[in-house]
Lab assay of single mutants.
Amino acid sequence: MPSETPQAEVGPTGCPHRSGPHSAKGSLEKGSPEDKEAKEPLWIRPDAPSRCTWQLGRPASESPHHHTAPAKSPKILPDILKKIGDTPMVRINKIGKKFGLKCELLAKCEFFNAGGSVKDRISLRMIEDAERDGTLKPGDTIIEPTSGNTGIGLALAAAVRGYRCIIVMPEKMSSEKVDVLRALGAEIVRTPTNARFDSPESHVGVAWRLKNEIPNSHILDQYRNASNPLAHYDTTADEILQQCDGKLDMLVASVGTGGTITGIARKLKEKCPGCRIIGVDPEGSILAEPEELNQTEQTTYEVEGIGYDFIPTVLDRTVVDKWFKSNDEEAFTFARMLIAQEGLLCGGSAGSTVAVAVKAAQELQEGQRCVVILPDSVRNYMTKFLSDRWMLQKGFLKEEDLTEKKPWWWHLRVQELGLSAPLTVLPTITCGHTIEILREKGFDQAPVVDEAGVILGMVTLGNMLSSLLAGKVQPSDQVGKVIYKQFKQIRLTDTLGRLSHILEMDHFALVV
């Protein structure tokens, strides 16, 4: 994948999101292997301009796509893939009243899908469409860049269908997702969380590099694949309309690839034109409109599966009536509230959605109805927002919020430890010299600072030695090549209790 991002070429006709291997024109390309080798690009942008032909009021008969309808489940399912879809609609009884809503608040519980998330729908649909058009064949390999849930859905379907599955996901995604993927037989590649989507090191860039190296491999490409919004247009939206008897006044959905909100909203605009569509985008993402909503100094966020630093091709923002931004604290607070007060075992993005819903639905009156999409299960986040310690460490809970008995030293300040200034190293000294210094002084790690004293990161003896043994660096290389740029900081005025929580999850903390 090139470091400079080429513009994806656009073909003359058809839909841009065809499933299957992508040609340089962004659509299915038939021909000899030699032709494909000559024409197939190194990668295709996940934010390529959409060429979708959908228009409100256009006859369904003019759609270029294969459409399906929700099917009634048999008493005995032939395999677990038949437990994807037909998820329950559940009334939220307490939270709406707590925040003064007059309307009825309903939750579409997508964590009841077989793999635990709304992404099971698009995973199965992308595979079925690729099999139907002859792209996927027995023994082929599926590769997908994902925040985890699409990966789980694909790995689940691949396990049943017999495909090899490789999932490329950023490091910030939970260990629970990784464990589930491994249990399903998927191979996992992790990428830096802070890598831009168009960087060769991003999950998108690495996935395309693997595709170019592995024979008979395919990126189904949830960011561009029409099967993504079509899955929701054909099934999720129809289920909502049936469950609500066609009567709903507002739908609120958090947005990642945009397939969920695009597919549902398009069908609702056709069948229930008075329904307002509300999009939820986390602070630090750029999906919301108008652009002024996205202006923030924050560039990272903890909530998973929603928000991006690019506009995915499948996201149709014209069908969203209003956007709201959400933050991590309210997302996790509301997710825990949904679990504790409503018994809905949902993930953090569901918290984002409901946090926005109780604001947006203030305009609705008694007798009206708001539906929220709860995308995934708490299963993926047992060591994250479900953990009091994690919430404390991230600053989303305060010590006084917890009532468990603490040891005698818990409320003492870090400054009472009488710490001395640490050994520091410059980023320009060599790895070999740094190892000598650390061994001589008896230290395992040291902060790396520039000549102005600005902290650049941390270097550890173990990481340097393993990097040297693996051949990633040489003793003569500058130590700046092996620094940890993500590390926890703590102030002298913070409590030892807070430091204790940090050290339970990290090997060190830097006192500043």
Rank of each mutant, 00 (worst) to 15 (best):
V168P: 03
S50C: 01
W43P: 10
R164Y: 12
I142T: 04
P88G: 02
G205Y: 07
G26W: 10
C244E: 00
K82G: 10
L230Q: 08
P59F: 01
S123W: 05
S254W: 04
E201T: 11
K83W: 08
L28S: 10
T13D: 08
L268T: 04
F111P: 03
G151P: 00
C15L: 10
M169A: 05
G96T: 05
S227I: 02
I92Y: 07
I264N: 14
E176W: 00
V178R: 10
G258D: 01
T146L: 06
C109Q: 06
E29L: 13
S32D: 05
L124F: 15
I264W: 00
R190I: 01
K119H: 04
V255A: 06
A207H: 01
L184N: 00
F112N: 05
E270N: 04
V206H: 00
G139I: 02
L184I: 14
R121A: 03
G139H: 14
E201K: 07
T236M: 13
P21N: 13
G258C: 03
T191A: 01
Q7A: 10
C165L: 07
I167T: 12
N149F: 00
E213Q: 15
K102T: 08
A38S: 13
E9L: 03
F99Y: 11
L154N: 01
P170E: 04
A158K: 02
I95A: 03
T150M: 04
Q222T: 01
R224C: 12
G162R: 06
V189L: 12
R276I: 08
P215R: 02
R161H: 11
S27H: 12
R132K: 13
I152M: 06
Q7E: 13
K102I: 08
R91V: 04
G153Y: 00
Y233K: 01
I152V: 11
A71Y: 11
R45P: 10
V160L: 12
V90Q: 05
I167K: 08
P88N: 03
A71I: 14
P46D: 00
G115I: 06
L124C: 08
A158G: 06
D245S: 09
S50M: 05
W43R: 12
A265Y: 06
K94P: 01
Q242D: 13
I76M: 12
C165E: 01
T68E: 10
P192H: 06
V252K: 07
G162V: 03
T235F: 15
P192D: 05
A231Y: 07
